[in-house]
Design a binder for these strands. Structure first.
Lengths: 358, 358
DNA sequence: GCGCGTGGTACGAAGCTTCGT
DNA sequence: GACGAAGCTTCGTACCACGCG
């Protein structure tokens, strides 16, 4: 076989298995298969110009030795890491966890891996730090799961890596993928109007959140387009607790017959507040949420809500990122056109909505 | 300055910025600072034997060039990747997402990164594939978030990497970190007995889940220790839907005055079933859950449940893993003693439990 | 000649390129 | 077109040696 005995003593097949500590290298495979390292490399990278028979020999040698290409060496040689970085916020938030899940899942269908960095606060400082970690670490592209970015200045980062932002916002110049919130909100509010409600109150997310703002704006616009009055908005912080606290105030407004909450958690708090105030849902007040938690179908009453297709969002962001990575191989900063992908949400009608009392 | 002009043409300071595409390497920093690459390496790794003045020079050169050490090259040279792999199941499950969150957070306090691999099914095949991915990829240790492993054979993996399993189970020989389920269950069941209930029914998780089994066993033992009868167990699948479906049957058993559900989601379904059957909670039936979802405090009624300290679990698993990684530097398979860390759960009493009707 | 601050060189594992058969 | 051999590249680190107090 090959004569690279000078490289290391134990590499010859004759050596006992006792010295097996270091993982097998390409040279080991080559020796066992009786081919050159070059050919092993060709097989490992699925090149076409290898004879089927030798390919088989090499593959079985790989299997026998349990050979795994050394990622570090490959990355060093190619300059690419086969790794996608994900910057995410609080995973306790349902949507964030779902997005991460679907991104991981989508990436798994490629030969990339995922490295996750969590941002603990919404400060520009924290976000910048996360990016720093990722660019120090070896990633070829970054997906930013940014459902509540305080200020977009934080997104103006020095980084020549391809980036995709999840949860569409037009304030920045990066390609983005997100739910078409406006469409979902429109469906929700229209559903309530169609049921006969004169207007719809809004329990919004925090004012410094872009998604919250978008939903509030869409709510406002839908009412306006329908020629309805727009009640004053209440702002929560996405939590069930805030929904409950604000809900107690809403419950005291006898004119309110329908409420659109910016997420299901706040809707849950609202349901409890209305219940305690003796205002039955949906007989007295209708409630619509946003997100479609797994639990929402079992709230009392089951919650009408807007379902977001997180799977699709994950798939699309990964696709968009890979796209960029392939088209701009270290081209520097060239966010070509900043594509924006909208994923359609879907209204799920359940028991928390009904026509207003006669 | 240095004389490595042979390495690449554009590296000399005189070259225009036009050729700047490749990130700056150590040699660039060395050239700019007028030292050897070796010294740059020393500074980058915070070694002590560098003169304070040269250290400053090197640091400012790094800053000026925006130098970042190349992870791949470093890994190749050292044989360590500074990366921890996490194998996780469905992130839609609250607990899994929480564990991932806390693991990521804990790792972030070290200079390691996290690579996430998701397992889509509970088959040994899928788990093995996940491990394969991780060992192909560059990780120094693995944390397995395994709250519902079908069979532990799947955990008997060829992998000489340090491993920590989250969600303690004694069927395998790996170090593990998890909630002390038995203790949490005991607290929950005892709470109900103390309220005056003669016995407590159990809405269990799926039979092929170890955590579910552990909780069921602890429930059984607690009742037995108290000398109470143990009603037949009903098995759900963790989902609110299964809780609802089984709950409808439970609601028809007039003897049932208290139910312990193996998680909050099933408890939610149960609450709804009891409500629909006209059996008020807690007046007619008391319900206790397990997990303490963010939402549980706003269920109708607010759910008494067992809180798990996921943050602590994450911290502990990372600590345990780092421990192993440092103590067993490529020692092969030597799971020393298989440490097991138990994290104490805590009963949270809310409105879903009360003494039985007189 | 001890020790500190340095520099020189080989090395790690894979890839690519150029020949050559 | 299927392969091999040799040599160079990637970048950072380990080890050893050197000069200078």
């Amino acid at each position: 076989m090959a004569q690279d005995g000078k490289r290391r003593a134990g590499a010859t097949p004759g050596a006992s298995a006792a010295a097996r500590a270091r993982p097998p290298s390409m040279a080991d495979v080559a020796a066992l298969a009786g081919v050159s390292g070059q050919t092993v490399s060709r097989v490992a990278n699925n090149r076409s110009n290898v004879d089927e028979a030798t390919r088989e020999r090499v593959l079985s040698a790989m299997k026998m030795l349990g050979y795994r290409p050394n990622t570090a060496a490959r990355a060093l040689a190619t300059g690419r890491f086969r790794m996608i970085g994900v910057v995410t916020f609080d995973l306790r938030a349902h949507g964030n966890a779902r997005v991460l899940e679907s991104v991981v899942s989508a990436v798994q269908d490629t030969d990339y891996s995922v490295s996750v960095v969590a941002v603990r606060s919404h400060s520009e400082q924290a976000v910048r730090e996360a990016f720093d970690r990722l660019s120090t670490q070896a990633v070829d592209g970054i997906i930013v799961n940014e459902p509540q970015m305080l200020d977009t200045a934080a997104l103006r980062l020095r980084s020549d890596l391809p980036i995709v932002v999840v949860d569409r916002d037009d304030r920045h110049r990066y390609p983005a993928v997100g739910s078409d919130d406006a469409e979902g909100v429109r469906a929700a509010v229209t559903h309530l109007l169609d049921l006969g409600h004169h207007t719809v109150a809004h329990l919004a997310g925090p004012q410094d959140s872009y998604p919250a703002r978008r939903r509030a704006e869409a709510w406002h616009r839908t009412l306006k387009d329908a020629g309805r009055l727009t009640p004053p908005v209440d702002y929560g912080d996405w939590s069930a607790e805030s929904g409950y606290l604000i809900g107690r105030q809403i419950a005291e407004r006898p004119d309110v017959t329908a409420v659109f909450a910016a997420n299901d958690q706040m809707a849950l708090g609202l349901l409890r507040a209305l219940h305690e105030a003796g205002r039955p849902v949906p007989d007295d007040v209708s409630v619509v949420g946003f997100d479609n938690l797994a639990e929402s179908a079992y709230f009392l009453p089951p919650l009408t809500t807007v379902n977001q297709d997180f799977e699709e969002i994950g798939r699309q962001s990964v696709a968009l990122l890979l796209d960029q990575m392939e088209s701009a191989p270290a081209e520097g900063t060239a966010p070509r056109g900043a594509a924006a992908v909208s994923v359609a949400p879907r209204l799920v009608v359940r028991g928390s909505t009904a026509p207003p009392r006669a």
